[in-house]
């Protein structure tokens, strides 16, 4: 089932054609990797899908709610994990915060996603990069989206933390979500993606199956060299 469809997306910033007739589909239970060199238009596409700005041409069709995990995470370091998960969606009882309910829901959610943290009442500032990323993803999941967009979720992470986040992405897929993940790391992409979409200078130049395509083919599509 198609959850997200982009048709002929075009966006220009001054002299830069950031997106040029891009088509994209994400179906349920599928991880689509969006790759491309710096400035290829990946973040622009994510923002256009999320509705941050309108497209010049083309359309975005969404079948179901969508949440985004932005590259800079946007967590409140001074608040604990539970408070961050429920920020803007606090559970309230008799006009007061229902901490018990939020803690219960947080525990259940984190367990479901296979995220292990030292304590849900620890301030986010005390967590590792991978744990913070996991909290940001869990926060997005709490909105019960059908589609998740992740912009470079492993960019700043070490090996073990990257594995943790990739596992989380796989978990989202097994729950039937459609996932669009932007990444620079081809090892990650080959590990988790069902499909690879390559952007170059705002155009979609290739759509590859990681089981069939070689890494060289992807690199060639990204750089534009003839393989």
């Amino acid at each position: 089932m198609t959850l997200l469809e982009v048709r002929g997306a075009a966006k220009r910033f001054g002299a830069v054609q950031a997106l040029d007739g891009v088509d994209l589909r994400v179906t349920a239970g599928e991880v689509v990797a969006l790759v491309g060199d710096n400035g290829a238009g990946k973040s622009t596409l994510v923002k256009a899908i999320a509705g941050v700005f309108p497209l010049d041409a083309g359309e975005v069709l969404r079948h179901g709610a969508l949440s985004v995990v932005w590259q800079d995470l946007a967590l409140c370091d001074n608040l604990d994990v539970v408070a961050n998960l429920f920020l803007g969606r606090e559970r309230v009882r008799h006009g007061l915060l229902d901490e018990l309910e939020m803690e219960r829901e947080a525990q259940a959610l984190l367990a479901r996603l296979g995220v292990t943290l030292p304590a849900v009442r620890a301030p986010v500032s005390a967590l590792s990069g991978g744990q913070r990323q996991s909290v940001a993803v869990a926060r997005a999941v709490l909105a019960q989206p059908k589609v998740m967009l992740l912009d470079e979720p492993t960019a700043a992470l070490g090996v073990a933390q990257t594995a943790q986040v990739l596992q989380l992405v796989a978990r989202l897929r097994s729950e039937g979500l459609g996932v669009l993940v932007v990444s620079h790391n081809l090892a990650d992409v080959f590990q988790v993606a069902d499909r690879i979409v390559v952007l170059r200078l705002g155009r979609k130049v290739a759509e590859l199956d990681p089981k069939a395509a070689s890494r060289e083919a992807v690199v060639a599509a990204i750089t534009g060299a003839t393989a």
């Binding site: 995470l73 967590l75 409140c76 608040l79």
Partner: peptide, 8 residues
Amino acid sequence: AVGGNAEA
């Protein structure tokens, strides 16, 4: 939250 990270 606003005091900790207004953008978030």
